[in-house]
């Protein structure tokens, strides 16, 4: 299973980076989502997989019994998911604005910088 997930993570990273290298800015957003998934799965897998055992103590137990999935990694990933969601929303708006200002989603047409309308408007 670890091997399978490791290969899956590698594939997600590869696709994510492939999209990152495209000229379309909207693709950058998709790549951001894909890379977040891959990164979260990397942490999740590297810490060791435990099938079906959540880090929950049953009623009356002083601690979750037996081997359970690592809760610290989960806490890390949980906030990572929510934060990357917030950042994604910000990035969407940023990309949208970039698109509106330049009238294109092609990164190559946005360069060369310096004579963009942004600078002219004194911002």
């Amino acid at each position: 299973m670890e091997l399978l997930l490791a290969v899956g993570i590698g594939a997600l990273f590869a696709v994510g980076f492939y999209m990152l290298l495209r000229r379309s800015v909207v693709r950058l957003l998709l790549s951001f989502v894909c890379l977040s998934l891959a990164a979260n799965l990397t942490i999740f897998t590297s810490i060791g997989l435990q099938r079906g055992r959540a880090a929950l103590a049953r009623a009356g137990e002083a601690a979750p019994e037996g081997p359970v999935a690592d809760p610290l990694a989960q806490a890390l990933i949980l906030t990572a998911i929510v934060i990357s969601f917030g950042v994604l929303a910000f990035a969407m708006v940023l990309v949208k604005r970039l698109y509106m200002v330049h009238g294109t989603e092609d990164l190559d047409l946005m360069e060369p910088h310096g004579d963009s309308p942004e600078e002219g408007s004194g911002r």
Binding site: V82, G86, A89, M92, V93, K96
Partner: peptide, 16 residues
């Protein structure tokens, strides 16, 4: 915070 963040973003995106 989470409700504030998501709803704020949603409403701003809707009215943009």
């Amino acid at each position: 915070v989470v409700v504030g963040v998501v709803v704020t973003i949603y409403l701003e995106m809707r009215s943009a």
